[in-house]
Design a protein around this nucleic acid. Structure first.
Length: 685
DNA sequence: ACTCCCGATATTTTT
DNA sequence: TATCGGGAGT
């Protein structure tokens, strides 16, 4: 086992504490992932827990993959690593639902609708056509679900007309989902919670299976997720055993339902909660941490916490004002190049961080002009591309014939003589008989509604899907049906998707789209074989489809080996970079102020979250941090005056950042680095 | 009805 | 820089 010796005292406490519930308040860069992975190893090594009874929950696939990776290296027995449950909340939800579907009147072949599908669902149910409103309604419904508010209560508590309307849509929305035998992302957590609440037997089964729980990024959990954790760890005659790791100062997802309240509640719900603070930062220089601490001090604190570092004072944090946004981009790219040249650094040592996605554009063009490689994190996900969603709709339909949204998409792309009016008639008929669209195609009486020229293509399509479906589920060599990806290849050939692309798009786009499709099918093939873990079980089409629904990025895709990172502050959480440029730090942008007429109290909590965002930004930097703001900025057609963000003042740079004194403690490594920097500076100017 | 063009406009994002 | 919505034109 490597390196328990390298854990500091608090980390050691966190890793070895096994007497009960444990909350680790892990400041930025304090070795959070290390504690989790080491703790898992410790749980196993101590002999108290078996790998198959330990579960670690994360929010993103990326975090889960990284954790799995790191734990695999740590464990002496490679077999143990594959027995662990390391997954996102949502994939655990899928696993539970698939196994317990019968208890919930859900078939195990349920579909998982993504937010786009849900959007169109709400669109169909809503009176308005205004996209903004529909999006708001969708958001409200999601918040209700995550807060475990049912439609009746939502309607009763509605404060205005729109909310009342949303509550009514909410009710229909749930009914529609169950008609489709489909769930949305929120249901993946909510339904297991309801099941565990109502069925002790099932709950105890899962409690026996998951005896020790570790929760990453605990500050980002919403009410529903916390409830799931609570239900899994508390049982009659059972001592709650879990470790939650989080940082209230990095809670930046309140807008999508996360509540830091969950940190406080934890103390109330578990009176013997052991709280451990990790305050030693292994990432940044002291100056950077001072700035971060100074900013976050302005927030009311749940838990007092001050980060410190052994890395020495480091270089001053630089703040510069720019004439306008265009020059900001230009200057920063220039500074970055010079800086890189001076230090013989790599492009990948640099990150440019900003509040809103739209701010990326101007930096992209500036970087491109200078031929500097860059990658943008966030942005449109691979699985959201229309060509991929087209293919997925076929998969979903084959897995679940009741999935009407998938049916509509698949039957109309590529076009095969089924149009809007045919679908409307079919929909009305299906509604009348309370059956799915697919079923309606073969139901007696449909002949009276649809002319043969409308019905024939429908039946041909459904026969075709039926035939694929049958082969996918017929027991084959593996006992799980014919190979999913091979079937998919045949499917692609049959529906002539490539030809469709070239018919409907110009050659260039068609080509890239087709390449995406091929990449996707290849990836699927790989996954159906069990992925890179050769011992992983072979997956059938159903399992693949449900997994795909939870994916956003295709891991290991076109990664520039050496590129500047462009990222929103949100997407940068959990990452670190030697040199960080935090740009557009202006009032109205970094404390982003939405509606000018938001109530004062709401504004206050919003500002607090914005401050945490600033804190996250500052603490991404290891060695140097540049902050910039613009005096003027183009906004649409007009140019607006800007003020520096209040957060710049709050960093208290002038006081804490006096010229370095002789007697200040600097580690040799840092002193050398500083010296080098000083020697090289004159060259740059 | 349906498409095309122009102008206004911009949170954050995972599952 | 895209995207969305409105208005005009087929």
């Amino acid at each position: 086992m490597n390196a328990p010796a390298r854990l500091n005292a608090q980390q050691h406490d966190a890793v070895t504490y096994m007497d009960g519930p444990c909350l680790v308040l892990a400041g930025a860069g304090s070795g959070k992932t290390r504690v989790i992975t080491q703790k898992i190893a410790h749980l196993i090594d101590s002999g108290v827990y078996e790998a198959k009874n330990i579960a670690a929950l994360t929010f993103t696939n990326k975090a889960a993959a990284e954790m799995q990776e790191r734990i695999s290296k740590l464990l002496t027995e490679p077999k143990q690593a594959s027995q662990l449950t390391i997954s996102t909340f949502h994939s655990l939800g899928v696993k539970i639902l698939r196994q317990e579907a019968a208890e919930l009147n859900l078939k195990d072949r349920f579909s998982i609708l993504d937010s786009d599908d849900c959007f169109s669902l709400v669109q169909d149910l809503a009176v308005t056509t205004d996209k903004q409103t529909i999006r708001r309604i969708q958001g409200v419904i999601s918040l209700w679900k995550n807060g475990m508010v049912d439609p009746v209560v939502a309607l009763k508590n509605a404060v205005d007309d729109e909310e009342a309307q949303a509550a009514r849509i909410y009710q229909n929305y749930m009914a529609t989902l169950s008609a489709y035998q489909a769930v949305d992302f929120d249901d993946l957590i909510r339904l297991p919670v309801e099941l565990f609440r109502s069925n002790d037997k099932v709950r105890e089964k899962w409690q026996r299976r998951l005896r020790y729980l570790l929760v990453d990024e605990y500050q980002d959990t919403n009410t529903c997720q916390y409830e799931l954790v609570k239900l899994l760890v508390t049982g009659a005659g059972k001592k709650p055993m879990f470790t939650a790791v989080g940082d209230d100062d990095q809670a930046i997802y309140a807008w999508r339902g996360a509540t830091i309240e969950n940190l406080k509640t934890l103390q109330d719900d578990f009176s013997d909660l052991k709280i451990i603070r990790l305050e030693q930062n292994y990432r940044s220089s002291t100056r950077i941490l001072q700035a971060a601490n100074a900013v976050i001090k302005n927030n009311p604190k749940l838990f007092e916490k001050t980060l410190w570092s052994e890395h020495g004072l480091g270089e001053p944090v630089e703040v510069s004002s720019m004439p306008d946004d265009e020059q900001e981009a230009e200057q920063i790219v220039m500074q970055l190049s010079a800086h890189k040249f001076e230090r013989h650094a790599k492009f990948s040592d640099y990150a440019i961080l900003y509040r809103g996605n739209y701010q990326a554009r101007i930096f992209e063009t500036a970087l491109r002009r200078d031929n500097i490689p860059y990658t943008i994190s966030g942005g449109q996900s691979f699985f959201a591309r229309s060509e991929i969603r087209d293919i997925i709709s076929y998969l979903r339909l084959i897995a679940n014939l009741d999935d009407d949204p998938a049916f509509i998409r698949a039957v109309t792309t590529p076009r095969r003589g089924v149009g809007q009016s045919t679908l409307e008639t079919l929909g009305a008929f299906a509604g009348q008989w309370q059956c799915s669209l697919f079923e309606a195609v073969f139901k007696g009486g449909i002949e009276a509604k649809l002319a043969p020229r409308q019905l024939t293509p429908l039946r041909e399509f459904c026969d075709f899907i039926n035939q694929i479906e049958e082969r996918a589920s017929r027991p084959g060599a593996s006992g799980k049906g014919e190979n999913a990806a091979a079937l998919l290849d045949e499917l692609m050939h049959e529906i002539a998707y490539e030809a469709y692309l070239y018919d409907n798009f110009d050659e260039r786009t068609a080509k890239t789209k087709w390449q995406n499709v091929l990449e996707f099918t290849n990836w699927l093939k790989d996954k159906s074989k069990g992925g890179k873990h050769e011992d992983g079980p072979e997956k059938n089409l159903l399992e693949l489809t449900q997994m795909v629904a939870l994916m956003t990025m295709l891991e290991g895709r076109d990664q520039e080996p050496d590129a500047v990172h462009l990222s929103t502050l949100h997407a940068a959480k959990g990452l670190e970079f030697p040199h960080v440029f935090l740009v557009g730090v202006e009032e109205g942008i970094l404390p982003h102020l939405g509606d000018p007429d938001t109530p004062a109290e709401q504004l206050a909590t919003r500002i607090q979250e914005e401050r945490r965002l600033m804190y996250v930004g500052i603490t991404r930097a290891q060695r140097t941090l540049h902050i910039s703001w613009c005096k003027k900025r183009k906004r649409g057609r007009e140019i607006v005056q800007c003020e520096p963000s209040r957060f710049i003042e709050e960093m208290k740079l002038d006081e804490g950042d006096a010229p370095p004194k002789e007697d200040e403690i600097i580690t040799p490594k840092d002193r050398l680095a500083n010296l080098k920097a000083l020697l090289q500076k004159p060259k740059a100017a």
